[in-house]
Computed example of a mutant assay.
Amino acid sequence: MKINPTVFRWLAIAWTIVMLIGCLTPHEELPGELVELNDKMLHAAIFAPFSILWILAGVRMSHTLIAGILLGGLIEVLQYILPINRSADWIDFAADGLGVLLGIGLAWAVQKTGVVAG
C-alpha cells in the first residue's frame, strides 16, 4: 500500500509548527526532560523529521535542504533578538543542518522502498 503525499504534507506542516513553537518557547517554560537532553543532538533530531516529511510530501530534496537551512538560521536569529531567554548558537545552526542532511538521506532511502506514492 502506497501512502499519499498529502498525508505527509499535513504532517510536515504540523511538525514545522511544533518545531517553531518548541524553539521559540521561553527556556523556563520548557519541560525539564527537554532541557536535560543534549542540545545539539536535539537540534539534529528535530530537523531530520522536518526534511523527511517535506520530501515525502513531494518537495524536492534541494528545496528542502535550502528551506531547512533557512529555517535553522531564522530560528537562531529569532532566539537572539526575541526576549525569550534563549540564545543563538552557531553550533546549533550546524546541528540543524546536520539534521536536515540526515533527514534527506533517510527520505531518499524511504523513497527507494516505493512506499510513498508519487
Rank of each mutant, 00 (worst) to 15 (best):
residue 30 L to E: 12
residue 62 S to M: 15
residue 70 L to E: 01
residue 54 W to H: 09
residue 13 I to P: 11
residue 55 I to W: 03
residue 83 P to F: 04
residue 22 G to L: 06
residue 66 I to F: 13
residue 74 L to Y: 05
residue 82 L to G: 08
residue 25 T to A: 03
residue 3 I to V: 13
residue 116 V to L: 15
residue 115 V to G: 12
residue 41 M to Y: 12
residue 47 F to C: 02
residue 84 I to G: 04
residue 67 A to C: 08
residue 22 G to V: 00
residue 77 V to L: 09
residue 95 A to D: 03
residue 73 G to D: 00
residue 92 D to S: 00
residue 94 A to S: 14
residue 7 V to E: 05
residue 60 R to M: 14
residue 3 I to A: 05
residue 66 I to M: 14
residue 79 Q to W: 00
residue 113 T to D: 05
residue 96 D to N: 13
residue 24 L to Y: 15
residue 84 I to K: 01
residue 112 K to D: 03
residue 36 E to G: 13
residue 51 S to G: 05
residue 83 P to G: 03
residue 60 R to F: 10
residue 69 I to W: 14
residue 48 A to Y: 04
residue 98 L to I: 06
residue 65 L to G: 13
residue 5 P to K: 01
residue 60 R to C: 10
residue 18 V to K: 01
residue 27 H to N: 11
residue 31 P to D: 00
residue 23 C to A: 07
residue 60 R to H: 14
residue 52 I to F: 04
residue 6 T to N: 14
residue 60 R to K: 15
residue 79 Q to K: 01
residue 45 A to M: 03
residue 67 A to S: 13
residue 86 R to S: 02
residue 59 V to E: 13
residue 46 I to Y: 15
residue 53 L to W: 09
residue 13 I to M: 11
residue 8 F to D: 03
residue 59 V to Y: 10
residue 101 L to D: 05
residue 85 N to F: 03
residue 71 L to H: 06
residue 47 F to H: 02
residue 33 E to G: 06
residue 106 L to W: 09
residue 32 G to W: 07
residue 46 I to S: 06
residue 39 D to F: 05
residue 8 F to T: 08
residue 21 I to L: 12
residue 54 W to E: 02
residue 81 I to M: 08
residue 17 I to M: 07
residue 18 V to G: 02
residue 89 D to A: 00
residue 8 F to R: 04
residue 91 I to V: 10
residue 56 L to K: 04
residue 46 I to A: 10
residue 36 E to Y: 14
residue 77 V to E: 13
residue 63 H to L: 12
residue 90 W to N: 03
residue 44 A to T: 11
residue 63 H to V: 04
residue 10 W to R: 13
residue 71 L to R: 02
residue 63 H to C: 10
residue 50 F to S: 00
residue 36 E to W: 13
residue 75 I to N: 05
residue 88 A to Q: 11
residue 43 H to M: 01
residue 52 I to S: 01
residue 13 I to S: 07
residue 72 G to K: 00
residue 47 F to I: 03
residue 23 C to G: 11
residue 13 I to N: 02
residue 60 R to P: 14
residue 63 H to P: 13
residue 18 V to E: 02
residue 105 G to W: 12
residue 84 I to M: 08
residue 75 I to L: 06
residue 4 N to P: 09
residue 43 H to V: 02
residue 10 W to D: 06
residue 101 L to I: 12
residue 74 L to R: 07
residue 76 E to Y: 11
residue 25 T to C: 01
residue 96 D to P: 11
residue 75 I to R: 02
residue 107 A to E: 07
residue 63 H to S: 15
residue 103 G to D: 11
residue 65 L to F: 15
residue 36 E to H: 15
residue 86 R to K: 03
residue 38 N to Q: 10
residue 12 A to I: 05
residue 9 R to T: 12
